[in-house]
Simulated scan of single mutants.
Amino acid sequence: MKNHKPTILVVNDDDIDAPGIHALISVMKELGNVVVVAPDTPQSGMGHAITIAKPLRLDKVGLYEGVEMYKTSGTPVDCVKLAVNKIFKGKKPDLCVSGINHGLNHSINVIYSGTMSAAVEGAIESIPSIGFSYDDFTYAADFSKCLPFVKVIAQRVLEHGLPAGTLLNVNFPKTDTIKGIKICRQANAKYAEEFDERLDPHKRKYYWLTGVFQNADKGEDTDVWALDNYYASVVPIQFDMTAHHAIPLLNTWKFNEEK
């Protein structure tokens, strides 16, 4: 078992040609045998969407030497489902990594993120999973300062595994020097959203979603604080969304009593 070379599934939401996924592949090649399944078009903000109303395409491509790569017409979550069912044929990889996303997925953004939803799907499949994101939306983003941290985080997960039902949400600040890694909680922060109303050439209204990020959480143990202070944030998250603390309260409401 000591000579076992791990199999690593790499996915993303920015599409198979995005620089972020190629940066991630370069690191994962150092750690194991890499299989890539990624969307053929950008899928940012797709959350945990799956494709059910139309057929899915899955095509093998040769974009990266020595790496088995596929592109699909589906969502980031579809990428993981197709990999497990059609490429690995039910045999699970040792690790699933998603990203590196062009743009942060901290605080509440984790719910909307296609990058993180792909990692969540990996965890649902009992695969140790990590989502990586970087605070630079541009296509020309330089991921080089993130890569040493990507490698050590992936190595530790391969060595130790993760608690059942848990995955990691990792975000990197855009800075000359990343100070280190902070294990954090998700900040109570979100976008104050607005819809910018405009008119098309036919005088019909249409809308662009806009917003300003607002952080109501002043704690120094959050992902937002870590990133603002030039640390990489690592938040353990789970797909069990049960609000366990609310169960005792709801049990006092006596739903089964006759009126």
Rank of each mutant, 00 (worst) to 15 (best):
D196Q: 14
G219P: 08
A232W: 01
W208I: 06
E220A: 12
D200Q: 13
Y207D: 05
W225F: 10
Y230T: 14
D228C: 06
D196H: 13
V212F: 03
Q214R: 03
L227Q: 01
V224K: 00
A232V: 08
G219S: 10
D217C: 02
Y207F: 12
K205A: 14
D200W: 09
D221A: 11
K205S: 12
L199S: 11
P201R: 08
K203Q: 14
D223L: 03
D223F: 01
D221M: 06
K205P: 14
P201H: 06
A226P: 02
L227P: 00
A232C: 12
Y231F: 15
A226V: 07
G219N: 11
H202E: 11
A216R: 06
K218C: 07
D221Q: 09
N229P: 08
N229G: 13
D200S: 11
F195A: 15
N215D: 10
V224R: 00
A216Q: 10
W208M: 06
A232K: 04
G219I: 14
Y206G: 03
N215C: 08
N215A: 06
A226L: 09
W208F: 10
A232D: 05
D228N: 07
D221P: 04
A226M: 09
V224D: 01
Q214E: 09
Y206C: 02
D228I: 04
T222G: 03
L227D: 00
W225V: 07
D200F: 10
L209V: 15
G211E: 04
T222M: 03
K205E: 14
